[in-house]
Amino acid sequence: MSWLTETLTSTPGRKVIMAATGIFLILFLAVHLTGNLQLLKDDNGESFNIYAEFMSTNPLIQFVSKGNFFFILLHVVVSVFLTRKNQQARPVAYKVPVKSGTSSLSSRNMGILGTVILVFLIIHLKGFWYEMHYGEIPYKNYDGHEARDLYAVVDAAYSQWYWVLIYVVSMLAVAFHLSHGFQSAFQTLGMSHVKYSPAIKLLGIAFSILVPAGFAVIPIVMFFN
């Protein structure tokens, strides 16, 4: 085994892959939310559609997007390996599970939360991303800009209550996943310091509340409009 594979397959190595990809996905969420908030603009989807058209055709964005998919995949695959190793590390379970006071609920259930998010992701991608790239969405013309009317697809989805419910519940899972994942990523990367760690923790909590809340607000508002 070369030093590199040895490093990346060690337990700290695998955790670093989780942390690095996690941080990338956190950044992605922030960008994604900024774009999505345009759905709430009262222009019948114009700015959102132009933004979506740009995102799905710009070569640079396409490149980053491929990376994003790769990172999601890596995050998932490595987590499967890690979970397997972790389960093997305790072949006989306790009769009385470890007292809950010793750690947070989300930190103990990252795998379950992650699975929920993965399922959501598939539904989500099928519903919008797949439609946008491979579906037949009619074009609209905005002052000479041709853009597909993704807004109409989204609007149609969010007028169904079960879609709204799926989104809101999934965002809860994302929130809990982030509440541990955000600060955990920094800890794994070795960034722990009496001065800065409290700030990172605070930022993590704020992020894990605000960002999923932002995502969840969109379907709710659109449903009632």
Partner: peptide
């Protein structure tokens, strides 16, 4: 030795 990976739950520190 077959120990698992750290997932930063902090249970170790707590006990």
């Amino acid at each position: 030795e077959g120990f698992g990976a750290c997932t930063n739950t902090g249970a170790c520190e707590a006990v």
